[in-house]
Design a protein around this nucleic acid. Sequence first.
RNA 1: GCAGAGGUAGCAAAGCGGUCAAAUGCGAGGGACUCAAGAUCCCUUCCUUCAGUAGGUUCGGAGGUUCGAAUCCUCCCCUCUGCACCA
Length: 819
Amino acid sequence: MSDIDFSKIEKKWQKAWHDKKVFEVKEDKKKPKQYVLEMFPYPSGSGLHMGHAHNYNIGDIYARFKRMQGFNVIHPMGFDSFGLPAENAAIKAKSHPKKFTEEAIANFIEQMKELGLSYDWSRKVETHKPDYYRWDQWVFLKMYEKGLVYRKKSPVNWCPECNTVLANEQVISGKCWRHEDTSVEIKHLEQWFLKITDYADELYEDLNKLDDWPELIKRLQRNWIGKSEGAEIDFIINKEKWKVFTTRPDTLFGVTFLVISAQHPRLMELVDSKQKVKVQEFVKKLHSVKEEDLDRMEKEGVFTGNYAQHPLTGEKIPLYAGNFVLADYGSGMVMGVPAHDERDYAFAKKYQISITSVVKPENNEKINAPYTGPGVLIHSEGFDGLQTAEAKEHIIKALEIKKLGRKVINFRLRDWLISRQRFWGTPIPIIYCEKCGAVPVPEKDLPVILPDKIQFSGVSNPLLTYKPFLETTCPRCKGKARRETDTMDTFVNSSWYFLRYCDPHNEKKIFDKDKAAYWCPIDMYVGGKEHACLHLIYFRFYTKFFRDLGLITFGEPAKRLFNQGFLLGPDGERMSKSRGNVVLPEVISKKYGIDVARLFLVSIASPDKDILWSDEGIDGSFRFLKRVFTYASTLKEGKSSKKIESKLHTTIKKVTDEIESFRYNLAVIRLRSLFESFEHESIAKSDFNAFIRILSPFIPHLSEELWQMSGNKGFASLSAWPAVDEKKIDEKFEQAEKAVEKTISDILNILRIVDEKKGKSNKIYVYVMPFELENYNAEELSKRVGKPVMVFSVSDKKKHDPEGKSSKAKPGKPGIYVD
RNA sequence: GCAGAGGUAGCAAAGCGGUCAAAUGCGAGGGACUCAAGAUCCCUUCCUUCAGUAGGUUCGGAGGUUCGAAUCCUCCCCUCUGCACCA
């Protein structure tokens, strides 16, 4: 059996699955559905490595498990096939990105099939195909209708390496998300935005409903959306009301200065003529500072020469321009309360501004300024003695009466900038007419197709100079017009793909409502945590929008989310082609078979942890599977002992649990342990079949083979998950098993001593309590200790017991005599 | 700086108040089989002890709670991952 060719077996079953369309599914109202999805990949030219395999394997095990449990499982796969790498490759080769993309996809599919992933390939979506991206454009138009799309000239993040702008979410510590060494520059451009902020509150609050999402992701999203409750307070400057946002309206009486952002568009209106030069110098200085250094800069400001009027006291408050105030958060102006805010304190110290304490800690403890905690109000006119929390309410109320302030909620989340100055993306369906301005392309004219016959020569978007695309007529006035050449961020494509899987070939609609209603929402979504504030926010936003359009009835796309860990290469680094530490599935497959690799990947550690690939480790999984095959091919039908039955059903129960909770590593250990019990005795065929079935999600191909070897018809993949028979589970067998193990180690221990003292021993006699007799199998014991073992009941009259060791026997602890 | 996650035997990794000297895999050592190697199978793998089921010292470090702690609490050290002036 050692020459068994797993790889060959796998090919056979891959073909059978494909030929019989085993994983294709249709809506079936009579069956409960289960939507299992792994984040679809960008089809890179370098193909799949073991790291990808690990990811898809985790989802596949779950999908297979659910399928066997009787669910109608939709488990689709597709490709997020727009994106820069293909375009860059095209520029380099003066070719078309479509060519690279489609070759890469073909390669990916091939590789995925070799992994034996149970996808319904009839549902494949590819985002670069017009029949997909036309619906991106359609959604854009719908958002446009609903006022969720706008165009604005604004400072945007520009990656010089990508030659395009980036969304806020794509800037990571001042660097591009794709180029960790490239600093993002700020440019001022006219760009299209999606008003995700309209959904900010819901995106924030609904996180509380996502009980089965990892806390980590929810925390990151909360952080990113950044909801803060506070007040908007009007300060009068030059007889005009200027809004200031604060989360601490309770400290209003401690305000001793105001700061307006140096980037504020209306800054100069507020600067006194005497200070103009100074302020201009200050602003100029800031412009020369790189974005990335801005973070680390000291808080600086310059007096504008102007004063604001305090809304409640009427006091004159100096106004500064500051480098640390964000122009696009709140109102771009803040109030300075140096006694109760670290930054304000430092600022006040630096510019010798007075400090007025208005909150004292409850227990009168001595504190170092500034005091930022809660307490009781002082020096706050009629509000003295109030707790900070109630003071907030009262002061806001007072402001509301005077119409000088109101309760307000602010978000850190910004609108989603979707314009990209690149070719390989969904064209934004907008036409610029000299008379009518920006006009959306009428729905009937969709899709706006990306041209195939276009030359890739330079670094910039070739659409800019490609007349057949560029030149068009205005849908409104029929006059001369030109098309928008910017394309959409690729995250647009991935924001709703899970819905398209439900009805991937629909030419009339984005998807059929009933089909989507049957399959959605996603029951189990598997993917990396790096998307916490990107894809995972965007697709929640799209889902809410679709709900508001009436296309679906749910507001959250995925009920459960699982973040898998990364597979690290043998060198302990993230597996990637550029690092040169990739392990290729096809290489491993050839040597061991892919099921061996799949089993190994989930044996190493809990799937949510980063795991380390090791070339030796996989041998363990290989040995195990070889043993299983040897066993299966020599299996003689028998009757299972009560002990085996108990263990089998315990295992089924636990493995079911462990798959459900993604503790695959523990499930594998249990399966191995069950098999070891099998090895020592004869078992019923039906019990072996149950074992094959619970093994099946982990080693799908080999299970099919075992299933067939065992004389079964059909596919193990489609067989029913074994039911647990609680009546057969009896813990006493587990204890018995432990007692046997202990006995073996005792025997060996005694043997060692005896061999040392008296020379070679021959036979071992074990005396057990009469009711324990069935637990002690002489044959197995002999094999385990490597010497003949005889088992007697203590009550057996004919037992060989020259030293009366049987009298030492206790339940669970047999007497032992060595001859 | 703030917020999270984590530090377990040679390595990886379970365990998260008693049944824990701590599952499992790898590695290492010994044995069986073989002319031999490989494969396979069995055993051992913190220390000591021994015709057995015993004792000792362990789960980043130091304290504490408890009849009892790898598991709970406090402080400290280290590693990783997010957010970095959002008022």
